[in-house]
Structures are given as structure tokens and as C-alpha cells.
Design a binder for these strands. Structure first.
Lengths: 248, 248
DNA sequence: AAGTGGTCTAGACCACCAA
DNA sequence: TGGTGGTCTAGACCACTTA
């Protein structure tokens, strides 16, 4: 079949076609050409645009669906994945009650301020040394008990004016906010877990004695391009909860 | 194409063919018909045996490869996955040094004894209340420092005589041993993480003060069938290491 | 009824590997 | 050279959704 190139381009000239198609689609999404929730062209149409067969487009889309980048719905179409409540709960939140159930915690914002990035912030978020960041402190309840003391650090450049007037109104699921208000989609994240002792601030926030062992989670959230967009430090009381990690 | 049924059976009469082929292959592996490391028949041959086309077998095998159940090597064939050193390090071990590198710890066995399963053991391992278990205590070093105090609990029925004469000679990577000596392949695992305070035994094993926050990992390892075969409790000093969890 | 994704087939050609 | 998996195509038919 002749390549038509009626609009879209294959990024590289090397490698399998389906990889190039996949990367072409990712690029389009990352650049905001197709935004979260939008329907992509049909497989046939994409095949025509990329100049490949429908089966090749299908393989590319199947991989993107496996990576939670698109959602496919039979009879309806293929859509750019959105950050739903379910996604937050099942994909990005890993604390279970001892009985194995899971709830998304309610959050109370303690403070929301701006400051210059610390050395660690700048390194993790790949910011210039003098960049400014937004710092959100909040406490999250599980089973109506304070369970997580959380610090969220964001590059101000990406999230201008976030939480400025009504810090208290920040939603519980921040990733939805990032996506809807700022067009920033968190695609993946890396978490570093440690056991630490509660300090005075933790003690106050969580109502546990200083020195209590807490599970510290340092999460770096990344966009589709692999650019870091959020640094989050959570200190969790695991007296009645545990962090679940599935290996398969 | 006519279904041939020259030996293999499709398990269910419902659902897509590739799912039935996939489950048929899993069943064969789980039953020991094809053992770890063995080469499977070619796609063409499997297609003939299952009475489906090569493309359908391919889809089944691709999913099994994605699940680390088989390994595909171009030009050579498709093989039942084995527990290699690499697999242990990259797939089943999650403690990194602070600089991001990873090493598989050396292990020193402290004790290896037999006892009746506790209530918790029996519940987790789905054993009858009076079942007997093998209990291995060991200390694992990272950067030449004791870093993990580990208790491994195994149903004696599945691992007869394990560690009987030479407990000290137990290898570092147990999953290889389970696979090679007992035909038990660990396919997946679920880990529950908590922060706990070091008790007297931890303090002795790891050389840290009583009360030091430790990362406790309770891992339940499962076979292909989803049957639990090992319960492992690791208490980790995370002063110079962290547990890495990737979300994507 | 028309449009979408989901399954299945058949066959071509390529890349890699071992004898 | 022959066998393996890897890619790509073309087309048939099914299942689901919406109008």
C-alpha cells in the first residue's frame, strides 16, 4: 500500500511501523493536539493518515491502551485516557485498610504557599536553581482518622495561580485538576518508600507520638514525555493500613 | 479452518479463541507438561494442535510473554520462563541504594526449623490448621551491612526435606531452588508494606537500636494457578536504601 | 443502518539463529 | 539452509453503540 501522508508524519525513519505510529500518536497527545477525553480518529482513518494498514494501527493502539494512555470502547471509539476517581483509587493510591478494602482519603489543606525551590526540589523536578514552586501541605483521613501528612511540590511555571485565592477548595484528586485546568496529564510515577520516625510536625498532623514509625512515600509524577511535574512527600501512619504492591 | 484436536484441548467452549489457547498453554505449564526452560512447540505447530491459525496462537503467546510466563527469542523459539538472577533482581527485589543502584543481597541463614503453622501462616498460605511449615530465618546484607531480617515460611508438603541437612547451604535466590528442586514456579507476588519499630530480635540481627523505624514487607508468593506457596516477612533498614515502586 | 472496535484467518516477507 | 519468531497487509465476520 502506498504511503499517503495526508497530514500526519511518522517520527523516525527506523524501526517497526507500529512503533512509529505509536510514538506519533503519543506525540500528538503530548502536544495537546488530542486532549484528555477526546476521541481519536478510527483505526481505518489513522491507517490512512499514517499510510499503514489498519492492523498496524491496531497494534499501536493496543499498546497505548495497555499503558493506560488511551481507552478503547467497542462500538464507540478510542479515547485519550482521563484521570477519573477510579484511576486515582486503583492506579495511583496504594494504601489499603487491614481488611483489604481501599478508600480514597478526604483531604484538608493546611497551607498553600510559594517559595524558591530547594536544591532537592530543583533536582527532582529538573528546575533551574532559582525556580519558584508551590507548596501544599495537607492531611488526609482514612477511616475518619488523620493517616497521611502530605507535602505536594509543584513548579509554579506549569501551574500558574494554582490555589491562589481558595487554597481550601483544592480538590481531593489533584491529578484531575492538573489535567482539566492546566492540561498536564500525569502518565506515570515513581515512588520511593522508607520507614521514618514521626517528627514534631507529623506528630501534630497525625496525632501520634514523636518517634512513631511512619511509612514515607516520595513520589515523582511524570508526564507522557517523562518530564517530572509533581513531587509529593507522604508520611503515612500504617498502624491500621498497609501499602500494597503487586508483582506480576 | 477445521479444528483438528490432535492432542490438545481448548479448556472452555466460550470466549475468544486466543484466550482459550492462552489458558490451555498456562494449564500445560502449571501441570508440568512443559517445564521451566523448555521450548514450546512453534506457533505453527501449536496452531495445528489447537486447531486455530498461527496469528491466534501468536496473540496468546504475546500475552504470556507480557506476563513473564514465557520468553520469546527470535530465531530460536518460545520458552517457559525461568527464575534467573536477573529476574530476581529486577522483578522481585525492590530495594535500591540511595544512589539508585541495586544489588542482590547476600544471605546468611540463622536458623531453619519446622513447626506447626500458626493461624496467620495457615490463613495466608491456605493450609489446614494442623499443617506443618518450614521456617527459615536469615539476615541479608546490603553494602556489606546487615540490612534485612527475613523470615521465610513454606508449606512442608510442597517442599519436602528442604534445608534438612545443610541449612547453611541454602542459595541466595530461593525461587530458583523452588523451581529447580521442587518444580514450584513463583509467577507473581503481593507485598504488604508497613513501617514498624525494631524489636529486640531485629535489633540483634541488624545492629540498630530497638525502636528504629523499619520497613516491613510481608510478601505472599503465588504460583501460576494463584496458589500461595511462600510467605515472607522482611524487615528492612531503610537508612541508606529505599523501596522502589513504579506506577505506569 | 452505519460506524466503531474485537476476533480470526491466510499469506507475504524480514531478521535472527543454528547446523 | 531451514526453522523460528517479528512485522505487515488485506479482508472477513462479529459485537457493541448510537441514531
Amino acid at each position: 500500500m502506498a504511503r499517503m501522508h495526508t497530514g500526519l508524519r511518522l517520527t523516525a525513519a527506523t524501526g517497526p511501523l507500529y512503533v512509529r505510529v505509536r510514538e506519533g500518536i503519543v506525540k500528538r497527545i503530548a502536544e495537546g493536539h488530542w486532549v484528555a477525553g477526546h476521541m481519536l480518529p478510527s483505526e481505518i482513518r489513522l491507517g490512512q493518515e499514517f499510510g499503514v494498514s489498519q492492523g498496524t494501527v491496531r497494534k499501536a493502539l493496543d499498546e497505548l491502551a495497555a499503558a493506560n494512555i488511551v481507552v478503547r470502547r467497542q462500538g464507540k471509539g478510542t479515547f485519550v485516557a482521563t484521570h477519573t476517581h477510579e484511576r486515582a483509587l486503583f492506579h495511583f493510591f496504594h494504601l489499603n485498610r487491614d481488611d483489604g478494602t481501599r478508600e480514597l482519603p478526604e483531604s484538608r489543606v493546611l497551607s498553600c504557599r510559594r517559595r524558591r525551590a530547594s536544591r532537592l526540589d530543583a533536582a527532582r523536578l529538573r528546575l533551574p536553581a532559582d525556580a519558584r514552586v508551590i507548596v501544599i501541605e495537607r492531611v488526609r483521613d482514612l477511616m475518619a482518622q488523620p493517616a497521611i501528612a502530605e507535602t505536594v511540590i509543584l513548579p509554579e511555571a506549569r501551574f500558574p495561580g494554582l490555589g491562589k485565592p481558595h487554597a481550601r477548595d483544592l480538590p481531593n484528586t489533584l491529578y484531575q485538576l492538573y489535567q482539566e485546568r492546566y492540561g498536564v496529564t500525569v502518565a506515570r510515577a515513581v515512588e520511593h518508600l522508607r520507614a521514618v520516625a514521626a517528627d514534631a510536625a507529623d506528630s501534630r498532623a497525625l496525632g501520634v507520638p514523636v518517634g512513631t514509625p511512619l511509612l514515607e512515600i516520595e513520589r515523582l509524577a511524570l508526564t507522557l514525555d517523562g518530564a517530572p511535574v509533581e513531587l509529593r512527600l507522604s508520611r503515612c501512619d500504617t498502624a491500621e493500613h498497609y501499602y500494597e504492591s503487586v508483582i506480576e
